[in-house]
């Protein structure tokens, strides 16, 4: 196992994601407190921490669903604007902790919605149905089927999302996110509620996504999943980044153990 501890970005190629001092305050509560995170090309970064540590809020800040109180976020050197759809257009895509598919659309339609920001046909074109419209629609469908195949559920293309089994819903959400042609994929607890087989296949899927050239940030509570998959792991505790390093470094760090299990009781 020799993975570079921190993929030091060179000046020539900016990192895929660069977050500097991201802070989010709700009323009196500082949910995210000056978190820095860098993600390099084809890197899988794990984000762990106890419940309420601010992981999802951090994701929300990255994707523009919450406006950070302060801090700067840039994707491949370009600062991201606050609006979620703009962020997605720039190349960040995400899944949700509590699956948020469009329940009454079919699996295929869900993925097609993901194509929205990579297609451009407007109202007049939809009304006229010219050759360009039809080409784009056909391309979109082809790509959607391809993605469904990639996550292994092409045969459920015409099933309403609500009727899919839980594991398939998670995979469909990933396919939908991939449809936006992202450079960075943010996965929020992709294996929550899965059995060991499903978790294993999810792990496979994440690896295959990386092989496609994407960088990935993943929030997870399943430590085996995190430590066998991630190049680098960051630990968030009470909104602050406590430790960042390789799986082994993080596992051995006493502060992490303390954060999860509490301070060991001193003899005196």
């Amino acid at each position: 196992m020799s993975v570079s501890a921190s993929s030091a970005p060179t000046a020539a190629t900016p990192p895929v994601l660069e977050a500097r001092g991201v802070t989010k305050v709700f009323g009196g509560l500082t949910a995210v407190d000056g978190v820095d995170l860098e993600v390099g090309e084809r890197e899988i970064v794990g984000l762990i921490g106890p419940n309420g540590a601010g992981k999802t809020t951090f994701f929300n800040c990255l994707t523009g669903m919450e406006t950070p109180t302060s801090g700067r976020i840039s994707y491949r050197g370009r600062t991201l604007s606050g609006k979620p759809h703009r962020v997605t257009e720039s190349g960040l895509a995400r899944t949700f902790q509590n699956i948020r598919l469009f329940p009454n659309m079919t699996a295929l339609e869900n993925v097609l919605v993901g194509r929205h920001c990579r297609t451009s046909q407007g109202v007049l074109s939809a009304l006229g149905r010219g050759p360009r419209y039809r080409r784009e629609e056909a391309d979109g469908r082809a790509r959607a089927h391809e993605l469904l195949q990639f996550v292994g559920m092409d045969r459920h293309a015409e099933t309403l999302a609500r009727n899919l089994p839980y594991g398939d819903q998670r995979r469909l959400e990933i396919a939908r996110a991939l449809a936006t042609d992202p450079g960075l994929l943010l996965l929020d607890e992709p294996t929550a509620g899965m059995n060991p087989q499903e978790t294993a296949s999810a792990m496979q899927l994440v690896r295959r996504i990386r092989e496609q050239g994407l960088a990935i940030v993943v929030i997870e509570h399943d430590m085996r999943f995190i430590f066998s998959l991630c190049d680098r792991v960051a630990v968030l505790v009470q909104g602050q980044k406590l430790v960042e390093g390789t799986a082994t470094e993080v596992q051995q760090d006493p502060r992490v153990v303390e954060a999860y299990l509490g301070k060991p009781v001193d003899g005196g």
């Binding site: 709700f26 009323g27 999802t56 994701f59 669903m65 919450e66 902790q97």
Partner: peptide, 8 residues
């Protein structure tokens, strides 16, 4: 009224 945080 107070602004309520939107949960993701």
């Amino acid at each position: 009224g107070e602004r309520v945080a939107v949960r993701a």
